[in-house]
Design a protein around this nucleic acid. Structure first.
Length: 424
RNA sequence: AGAGAGUUGGGUGAGUGGCUUAAACCAGCAGUUUGCUAAACUGUCGUACGUGUCAAAGCGUACCGGGGGUUCGAAUCCCCCACUCUCUACCA
């Protein structure tokens, strides 16, 4: 969430930023925010003063009791009970006021970075880079991946339906080994690039959901274990970033660079329709995620570094891709700047999003209370994350783009991980 | 899952209702001494919100696992919850 002080000091900038996101009533909401915060301060001031008085009286009573002036002590007590009820009323009022403030803050998305263009949806995103050539498939070898997986019997959706439901594929034989090989490849590459590997829990509590911004509002997108109050993670971003909830790091600890592999679970309520066949959209999928905690001064360098890193993976996998800088209207709620990486899937003739790399600046850190110490000052850190990478669409593109007469040719870099060169 | 014992600052650890404004030690930081290192000594050393200010210092309030209660006053007493350790039971 945003910080009220930031809004006070950058009111116009904040309004303009929210307009890029087509956030209706930005000015009114921000004005209300400042008013609620003013009211909160006034109540606190009054309450603090009364409590200071009460504390002083209590000390006096203590001294009177010790020196045996019981009657005098009793007389002073009457004033404190008066204060007590006033303080109680003020505290209740304060709690209501603060709650209203926080609820409003939860509804306001992050302010986009200055380079983010206004826009309404995917059609307004900017292509900032592209790489590789789009493969030309021959008429006899241009099957979409959902046909290829049947042809070679490597992924079975019907079996998944039998044991779980739609959107829970079963990977078999070389299909399973391809998954495992990709995960190992991604983790090894990340380790080489200086990331620390983390294996986090894949169920998280409510506080963690709030920490990274999935809650409130996105509860409908997460699977929830009612008995235990735990959510299945939609991405490793949630547990790995929440590792640092309520922490104060040292400036020398930065940047923190973690990587983790987890399955991800998404209910995807209401998002089924065209273009979701096969591996394009699933309830459960595997993903390797990179998470940075950065000094505010160089978080945008870190973002570029992460973008370059992800592009390097795609190059090694020999997949044609493009990089989009998302417009205000298409960016996630908590992000200030997001790059999407899309690979071209030759048989579907579509670009598929395989990674999303974002800088959240202090939006997550404010909720997480994630700070660091520098020169005796406590400063909010910047958080960033990105997929490196999400498996299903990578698999879809590898299958479609590399299909030949003799089967599907495995990219060179994966062969040591798989122990076979062809799926046939 | 049952029984018992615990949870205090970065760490160790004292503290059973009012000189506690959380002792002491260690670590950290700054300084003094010193040819260098070490040691010694002195000082400093939490977080949040508010107030104040150009900025700060300072001041106020809250915080001793989390939440609630008793009391003029709670680290201390009571209740609920979480976690840790030991034993028992169970288990991949």
């Amino acid at each position: 969430m945003l910080q009220v002080n930031f809004i006070r000091e950058n009111f116009e900038k904040a309004v303009l930023g929210l307009k890029k996101r087509n956030f209706a009533g930005a000015e009114a909401a921000l004005n209300q925010l400042v008013q609620l915060d003013d009211a909160r301060k006034n109540i606190q001031l009054e309450s603090d003063q009364l409590q200071a008085e009460s504390n002083a009286i209590s000390k006096t009573i203590g001294k009177l009791m010790q020196s045996g002036q019981i009657e005098e002590a009793e007389r002073v007590k009457s004033r404190t009970s008066e204060i007590k009820s006033q303080v109680k009323a003020l505290e209740d009022h304060y709690a209501r006021q603060e709650n209203e403030l926080v609820q409003l803050l939860y509804t306001i998305p992050n302010i986009p970075h200055e380079t983010v263009v206004p826009g309404f949806g995917a059609e307004d995103n900017e292509v900032v880079h592209s790489h590789g050539t789009i493969p030309e498939l021959t008429p006899s070898n241009n099957l979409p991946h959902w046909e290829l997986i049947k042809k070679y019997d490597i992924i079975d959706f019907e079996l998944g339906v039998k044991i779980a439901g739609a959107g829970f594929p079963v990977y078999k034989g070389k299909g399973a080994r391809l998954q495992r090989g990709l995960v190992n490849f991604f983790l090894d590459e990340a380790t080489k690039a200086g990331y620390t590997e983390i294996q986090p829990p894949i169920l998280v509590n409510e506080d963690s959901g709030y920490g990274t911004g999935q809650l409130p509002d996105k509860e409908g997108q997460m699977y929830f274990c009612n008995e235990d109050g735990l959510y299945l993670i939609p991405t490793a971003e949630v547990p790995i970033t929440n590792l640092y909830r309520n922490e104060i790091l040292q400036a020398a600890d930065l940047p923190v660079k973690n990587v983790g592999f987890t399955p991800c679970f998404r209910r995807e309520a209401g998002s089924w329709g065209a273009h979701v066949r096969g591996l394009n959209r699933l309830h459960q999928f595997d993903k390797v995620e990179i998470v940075h905690i950065s000094h505010p001064d160089n978080s945008y360098e870190a973002l570029e570094q992460m973008s370059d890193y992800v592009q390097g993976l795609l190059q090694k996998l020999e997949l044609p891709y493009r990089v989009l800088r998302l417009c205000g209207g298409d960016m996630g709620f908590t992000s200030a700047l997001t790059y999407d990486m899309e690979v071209f899937s030759a048989a579907q003739e579509r670009w598929l999003e395989v990674s999303s790399v974002s800088n959240f600046e202090t939006y997550q850190a404010t909720r997480l209370k994630l700070r660091f110490k520098e020169d005796k000052k406590t400063i909010l850190a910047h958080t960033l994350n990105g997929s490196a990478l999400a498996l299903p669409r990578i698999v879809a593109a590898i299958l479609e783009n590399n299909q030949q007469e003799g089967g599907i040719k495995i990219p060179q870099v994966l062969i040591p991980y798989l122990g076979f060169e062809w799926i046939n």
